[in-house]
Nucleic acid binder design. Structure first.
Lengths: 341, 341
DNA sequence: TTGTAAGCGTTATCAC
DNA sequence: GTGATAACGCTTACAA
């Protein structure tokens, strides 16, 4: 193996080299490659030959600088570790790569400051579009985006005042709908476990949805029925513990995150509590896991792949000038009724 | 909201504007920003002021072109949808962003041709390094990489003949070890279910590991004990079906993928088969799911976050010139013994 | 310590 | 249909 040596051709092959080999000008090569129809048949062939003879790899950096047009889209997620985002990323990637664009990914670490830093970094990379999972941003981040005028799609929640494009579902309505379902099933003391609310519009909206439903049904808006816990299997058990201790009448719990619900199911089994006999359980985010528990968990299914696909398409439409006005895609969530409630 | 208008300052702010406002040359601004220590105290302040007065966002595209140095690393995975990769991506991202670099992601669609296309595209973007999950590549892809001389780390399997850097674990040894464990436990008719072998070195190596262990133990290398199935919950049930029909004596199955094992566990419960009483089950890839099944599944745990972290560090070392020679990190896998075997 | 000039590899523009 | 020339916004190399 001697590939490591950078010897032979110190200088990278550039469009000039192709031009020389094809006996034409650089400009003609550029045209032959990007608008083959604008060039004579035989020239197209000569250029193509020269390209693989010299092993030419067009330099997109130079092209971007020259044309002031980038083909990279930036995506900022709260975390890359959370496998919930995988479907969305795939949706984005499928659309982007299908159109000759590229995807840069960063995480905000579940904080607004982290998001701002990532946005600034992406703007320095001159991304042609920005996909943000957050709907809350620092003032500085908003100003940055508006000043640069880069197309942006917010995808984590259907915000009423989007910066530009928004493609998502309503966390508020989803939580409200699930809570109403529980109430309709006859549960009267419905607990709610939320993930951390700080800097997280989605968590806040889900809690608002729960509260709204509770009020609509004339149930007591009892603060002791609400618990904020960090994500994790252990939190599910802790929730059962705390909520049932303070509220002897507790007959259902709605968890704002899948992992919490799994922990709760396990804790119930440990205690020998029948689900939903002793207590009903509902969840948010339809991860595969939830259909394998015993009983399987009633939950909200989110159109994750489509959120990715449609948001990427909206960005490309904007980039290409095909669409100029802000758009809102309100994608439908779906209540998946299973055995736990 | 009037941010959409691109009016006010048609031309983007550039380093010249900062220079003018600070009363210095462009070069001095560049230096003040990149090597503050090489510049006088008061000048540093004047430049900093000018920067936020005019709202300057350095153009990394121009910087890259000018310096022939990019700060973007490309990662190519078989699929983005597979949540197994999330930890690895986070590991990579943490290191890269901590060092002011960026991450581009693409998927190869589980095919060698797809990988080659992604590699070519990334090289056109002039990435400074490449992280490949595959260890098999088309000849053209290898030539491309060697000609350009870009640092590469292969991370999906510990290949004996890496292109450059390799940071992974041995799929062969992991599968072999697990199979030996089953043999030591007294199972004599151990089935093996592999994921598709086409274009997939990891699958092939796992199967080799199984075969090697079987041979070592003097067990029959019975082809009817081996089954190749696509991933998916349904495949687990199918495997139980087919293998047990042909092999009445079957007493254990080793699944080369987590989802398969979950499907098998469910199928066993449906049939009322005791696990491991009637049949033992072992798996590969320690997804959370496997510890929640009943019984929890004995499996191989892979250091996924560390693979990401260390491979990214190795790439950065190479990029910065700190390390020049190929490296091999053989990260340890871990057998997690649980109830299913 | 600071400034000048010449690229980096393309594409936009306008002649031919 | 094809080519010459000037950007694009920054950094390298070197001069002051």
């Amino acid at each position: 193996m001697n590939g490591r040596q950078v010897s032979s051709s110190r200088a990278r092959v550039c469009i000039q080299d192709v031009a020389r080999h094809a006996g034409v000008s650089a400009m003609t090569v550029s045209r032959a490659l990007r608008q083959p129809e604008k060039v004579s048949e035989n020239l197209r062939r000569r250029v193509a030959e020269a390209v693989d003879r010299v092993g030419y790899l067009p330099n997109r950096i130079a092209a971007s600088l020259s044309s002031s047009r980038s083909n990279v889209v930036g995506l900022i997620l709260p975390s890359l570790r959370n496998s919930l985002f995988a479907d969305t990323i795939q949706g984005i990637s499928d659309v982007l790569h299908g159109a000759g664009h590229h995807l840069m990914i960063a995480d905000s670490g579940y904080g607004l400051a982290g998001e701002e830093a990532a946005i600034r970094a992406f703007l320095q990379q001159r991304v042609c579009g920005l996909l943000l999972h957050n709907t809350w941003h620092t003032d500085a981040a908003r100003r940055l985006i508006e000043r640069v005028g880069v197309p942006v799609a917010e995808i984590g929640d259907l915000t009423p005042e989007p910066i530009d494009i928004t493609v998502s579902y309503s966390n508020f309505e989803a939580a409200r709908t699930m809570t109403l379902l529980l109430a309709r099933r006859g549960y009267r003391h419905i607990g709610f476990v939320t993930l951390p609310l700080k800097d997280n519009a989605r968590s806040v909206e889900r809690q608002r949805g729960y509260l709204s439903a509770v009020a609509e049904c004339g149930l007591a808006a009892d603060p002791t029925l609400i618990l904020e816990l960090p994500s994790g299997i252990g939190s599910g058990a802790k929730a059962i513990d705390r909520l049932s201790e303070v509220n002897p009448g507790l007959d259902a719990i709605f968890f704002a995150g899948d992992v919490l619900a799994v922990g709760a199911i396990l804790e119930c089994r440990r205690r020998g509590w029948a689900v939903p006999g002793r207590i009903a359980i509902a969840s948010f985010d339809d991860v595969d896991l939830l259909s394998f528990t015993d009983p399987p968990v009633t939950t909200v299914r989110i159109p994750r792949y489509d959120i990715g696909r449609l948001s990427a398409e909206a960005i490309l439409d904007r980039v290409s000038g095909r669409a100029l006005k802000p758009v809102t895609f309100d994608l439908a969530f779906q209540i998946i009724e299973r055995g736990s409630a």
